[in-house]
Design a protein around this nucleic acid. Structure first.
Lengths: 66, 66
DNA sequence: CAAGAATGTCACGTTTACTTGACTTTCCGA
DNA sequence: TCGGAAAGTCAAGTAAACGTGACATTCTTG
């Protein structure tokens, strides 16, 4: 599962810790999702989408990572 | 997290076992999701959305259940 | 009504999402 | 160049997602 989280975060000049705070998760979790260690839960995916005012499909891509 | 899974499945006259097969999960998992025992993972949510040709947001609702 | 199909549920086990704490590495501005 | 901030990572633990097997209940349909 690919995602545009790093790009969206960088566009806003947020650190992983900033984003983690806004999402209510640990900094390491944001890092793990950005680096593809695991996928977020569905509730977290919704929180991410809402934070960026985007659809889940516009952030996450149901394909394998390179 | 509310979802329209039961309705979408019923519209097609599929049993929970039918749907579970198509999604590649256990029948009990479909039942648990429909009855609100837990939310699907993000990958599973994508498979569900694709199966019904809908967006994730059109099936799952980021609100508390009644 | 009877029988089978569908659904609900429970216990137990595995995997994955996520936390916490600590440490190292990389990046960037004074 | 040096120091702090950001990012990467690892180990160990908890919680939630999912599987399997078994059984009870409800829903059809002959």
């Amino acid at each position: 599962m690919k995602n545009r989280l790093r790009v969206l975060r960088a566009e806003r000049s947020w650190s992983q810790a900033d984003l983690a705070d806004k999402l209510g998760v640990a900094r390491q979790s944001v890092n793990a999702i950005e680096t593809g260690k695991f996928d977020p839960s569905l509730p977290l995916a919704f929180r991410i989408a809402r934070l960026f005012s985007l659809k889940v499909e516009d952030i996450f891509d149901d394909e394998v990572r390179d």
